[in-house]
Design a protein around this nucleic acid. Structure first.
Lengths: 127, 127
DNA sequence: GGTATTAGTTTCCTTAAAGAAACTACTTTC
DNA sequence: GAAAGTAGTTTCTTTAAGGAAACTAATACC
């Protein structure tokens, strides 16, 4: 019986794969890490500040991504009753728990680059 | 002078953001983490085994993702001269360095879920 | 010869992601 | 009253991602 030799391995592995799917569903898209990373740096930022700070993003995208992140309790949105009305965005405690992931990803990105440069001179993909 | 109070912060932060972009460009898409995670578990898998193991993926997607990963030196593709011709995929040393990222993401996914269940009973987004 | 397995590729199609520009609504400053 | 700044939303369009099914080509088995 060769069949079902592998397929849907031990229970812990399923949990692991589901956990990865959960994380990536929340963090998917071009801008999530960028926005979260920026908020880690500046602590509190207003909409227009984020729009200037997150390089290349448009108002629509920023608005949508912020809503996503707020829905998932990663950032907090506070409306201040200032004269022309400003809104402040900041990471929640839950959002701050993403620190290690972002650190790990940033670290990998840096070592990955330097590894490639060491191994071959010919640019291997999109360098 | 209120202007340029923030915008394009210290040099290290730019590097960090670029590194994150690098990583995510390579790891973007619905299936990358899934495939890599599976190859971490099984060490070596043939195309058809991956097709069965990676839940829900189609032949076209798998083929494309494997090519991407190979281009970026994260997996190695070996053609065996067996009777009906088989191909073996495995992680490279470089690919294996993704271990900590995947661990961190899986860990976060699990604690994120449990945090939500502790805080509120009402399902907050896609639970 | 007919069926099955291997590893894909090709074609066609749908949906989701992303961006540009214009627009709303309110307030302050000149 | 006109201009500019706040925080978005709306509309329209393009591009990318992803999937289903059929197909190639080689070989082996019965």
């Amino acid at each position: 019986m060769k069949k079902e030799a592998l397929s849907s391995s031990s229970t812990g592995c399923k949990t692991r794969i589901l956990a990865i799917n959960d994380s990536m569903e929340i963090l998917a898209g071009k801008w999530k890490f960028h926005i979260i990373g920026t908020l880690m740096l500046f602590e509190k930022l207003r909409f227009m500040e984020l729009l200037r700070e997150v390089d290349g993003i448009g108002a629509k995208m920023l608005s949508k991504e912020l809503q996503d992140l707020e829905m998932n309790h990663l950032i907090k949105r506070t409306v201040l009753n200032t004269k022309p009305l400003t809104v402040e965005y900041e990471l929640t405690d839950c959002g701050k728990t993403l620190g290690p992931i972002i650190d790990e990803i940033a670290k990998w990105g840096i070592t990955y680059r330097s590894t490639l440069y060491q191994k071959n001179e010919t640019s291997p993909a999109a360098i």
